[in-house]
Nucleic acid binder design. Structure first.
Lengths: 197, 197
DNA sequence: AGTATACTGAAACGGCCGATTCAGAACGAA
DNA sequence: TTCGTTCTGAATCGGCCGTTTCAGTATACT
């Protein structure tokens, strides 16, 4: 009936995502996005409506393709403390890989820092991300409580602590990925010591 | 000999600092700074040279007046684990105070997220801040090693962990200060449990 | 063949960006 | 009083901001 799109929305989002990831929302101009996506303004606006729309889609894609896979192992009801260690060791590997976009930190954490409280597509979902993180940790740590070594209060507290540490690691990675990798190692040691107690 | 300045540099920096703190570097325009400082462009530029110069001075003032006082208690060689608890309980109090600028997070952490790796007055000193934090924690935790309850490796590891947790708490505060306060409470509980072990 | 959409490239919008310059008035110290 | 500086206000700079519009061309469907 009508002429189809010559480009994939997903591909355009992919390129935009890495631009926002590296340079932030304000640091990325429409002209940057034109260059990265190899699309002109008109196509961009007809497909996404606005810069903010494109950013929202980038954020969605980021969570779906990057964050979720990191967390799902810990969501499994059979998850154990070793899955928590696995999470941080996978992070460490990303930080040590000079090619990984993880060296620019976490798109979401960066976005929270960039527009806090301001009218932005970030603010609402920031709490979601935080809770998702804490729940994943709490779930994976839960079996140590079941095995009686610790009370559930301690588990909860440690899940919170790991959540906030994850935020911190991302910030650290943005300015020094190698240090963030060492940080993950240290966290893994600490978590291992919890398993022994 | 010549006409003196009618305004204080420090006062101008003070106003600029809070503007940057709330809205970030890129989010704050010269026109914002004119409004906040009640100075016109010419005075601003003749006094500070550039927006970046004003930002650098704001960052210095931030560290001197806000960060240093929070850390010095832990720098004391006689510092104990209770000073670490004190640090987080002071943070919690700031987050619970609706007037405190701490509700906008940490100017430095925000800046790291905003320009990582880019030509900015932040990048060099980011490592300084990180190390200063870790050293302060390590120093205040050291006596638990001296008292033989823990090896120095554990102390080091925990100091790193608290450093990264502090980063995370600041990010968390930027989007939900009340939650950050609760987070500090949880950290205090955890730290207290270290003292008992 | 006709129709409906998508493509490209360019132009233009009002507005702000950071920064520089100027004229004129105000002021303090020598 | 004179000299040197700072003040204010306004204008200007080139450039990018995000966004809209348009004419012209290409493409796939019925």
């Amino acid at each position: 009936m009508t002429r189809p799109r010559a480009f994939t929305l997903a591909a355009a989002v992919e390129e935009s995502k890495s631009a926002f990831w590296e340079q932030g929302y304000q640091g990325t101009g429409i002209r940057d996005l034109e260059r990265r996506t190899h699309l002109n303004r008109s196509s961009l606006y007809s497909a996404f409506g606005s810069k903010e729309g494109l950013f929202r889609d980038s954020l969605d894609s980021y969570i779906r393709d990057f964050i979720d896979p990191l967390l799902t192992p810990m969501d499994d009801p059979r998850a154990r403390i070793r899955d928590v260690e696995g999470f941080f060791s996978r992070l460490a590997a990303l930080f040590r890989d000079g090619e990984s976009p993880a060296r620019h930190g976490c798109l979401w954490v960066n976005s929270i820092a960039e527009f806090a409280g301001r009218p932005a597509p970030v603010d609402v979902r920031a709490a979601e991300y935080r809770d998702r993180l804490r729940l994943a940790f709490a779930n994976a740590l839960a079996d140590t409580a079941r095995r009686g070594s610790r009370g559930s209060v301690v588990i909860q507290r440690r899940a919170w602590m790991l959540g906030v540490a994850t935020y911190g690691v991302w910030i650290c990675a943005r300015h020094d990925p190698a240090d963030a990798a060492r940080l993950c190692d240290a966290l893994i040691s600490e978590i291992r010591s919890w398993g022994r107690s």
